[in-house]
């Protein structure tokens, strides 16, 4: 397996810490700890662990001070997976950086073949489109699964709605928020706003009464009808996640396949755990889960997942 982060896998370097003790650094340990080798001699990027890309301003202030102290160039970079990276850090100062970050409760992220820091959009906490609490889910995944060894990297993300800003179709395992809309005739005034609000043409208006004619096949379960309805005739029946498996970007991008159309929040940890179990049992070293699924077969995976995915009927059903 090629590791793009640290080329020299055997070198052990003796480093003086605090000018007195000598400590051995194993470069193999470093890569799991989110230290990424730079072009420049002795300099590394330190990737922080920021699930869902969220940080308290208090922590951000403290991180700024540490970054200012240890970055030889005084720069940080926002990684493509929402984590903050301190650039140009001398490896001889790793222990100090980690210790100072530890003091403010900031962990370092990871690279390599393991469960990575989850990414997420803002979610239902403050985004009007949000249907699921993506930030809470990202935090849960980070606490429960971060760093779990897998045959290759394992990336997860949470999008709060079908706009899918967190790009669940490009993840090893992605969760996208959905809502099942339900309609009550009594409170409907036939105003036709829902059919105007629906961007998918899933709601037509009866020419005589103006009342909605719903087509669940066209529906993306975004909840626009529920939000637009002036009289609450459209209501949320239940919220959940579409689960997608086997996506990736990189040199050979693959689109994830939908394996569950409506998974409730409380089943997400099980779904991830069972998927990691399947991946570890079936994936070859250095093989992403998407390729493992192609080789072993999606049916094999779905059979394994039956206990979690059963009774998760499709939305609109």
């Amino acid at each position: 397996m090629t590791d793009h982060f640290i080329e020299d896998k055997t070198t052990k370097v003796t480093v003086a810490v605090d000018g007195t003790e000598a400590q051995k650094f194993d470069f193999n340990d470093l890569k799991s700890g989110g230290f990424i080798k730079q072009r420049q001699k002795d300099l590394f990027t330190v990737r922080l662990r920021c699930p869902g890309g969220r940080l308290s301003t208090e922590k951000l202030l403290e991180i700024s001070k540490i970054a200012h102290k240890y970055s030889k160039k005084g720069v940080v970079h926002f990684s493509f997976r929402q984590s903050l990276e301190i650039l140009y850090v001398d490896y001889k100062e790793f222990s100090n950086v980690v210790a100072e970050l530890e003091k403010i409760g900031q962990k370092v992220a990871s690279c390599g073949p393991r469960v990575r820091v989850p990414t997420a959009c803002g979610g239902c906490e403050y985004n009007p489109n949000g249907l699921t609490d993506t930030q809470k889910m990202a935090d849960m995944v980070d606490k429960t699964f971060f760093g779990t060894p897998t045959p290759h990297k394992f990336k997860t993300s949470f999008s709060g709605c079908p706009i899918d800003c967190a790009r669940t179709k490009e993840m090893d395992m992605g969760f996208q928020g959905v809502v099942d809309p339900t309609w009550e005739e009594e409170s409907c005034t036939g105003c036709t706003i829902c059919s105007e609000a629906c961007k998918e043409d899933a709601i037509a208006s009866d020419p005589d009464t103006g009342k909605p004619i719903f087509d669940p096949v066209k529906c993306l379960f975004c909840g626009d009808c529920i939000r637009a309805c002036p009289t609450e005739a459209w209501k949320p029946k239940r919220y959940g996640h579409i689960v997608r498996i086997g996506g990736k970007h990189g040199r050979h991008p693959m689109e994830a396949v939908e394996v569950c159309s409506f998974l409730p929040d409380e089943k997400v940890p099980d779904a991830i755990k069972m998927t990691i179990d399947w991946y570890n049992a079936n994936g070859k070293r250095g093989e992403r889960i998407g390729n493992a699924l192609k080789r072993v077969g999606l049916d094999n995976y779905l059979k394994h997942m039956e206990p979690v995915f059963q009774n998760t009927a499709k939305a609109g059903a």
Partner: peptide, 26 residues
């Protein structure tokens, strides 16, 4: 406009009490 404004009005806590479609506008 009709896709977005009513949602936002509702989210601000106001009540939409009547909606009439008149040709191209509401």
């Amino acid at each position: 406009p009709i896709q977005n404004v009513p949602k936002s009005i509702k989210e601000e806590g106001h009540k939409i009490v009547e909606v009439k479609k008149e040709g191209d506008f509401f």
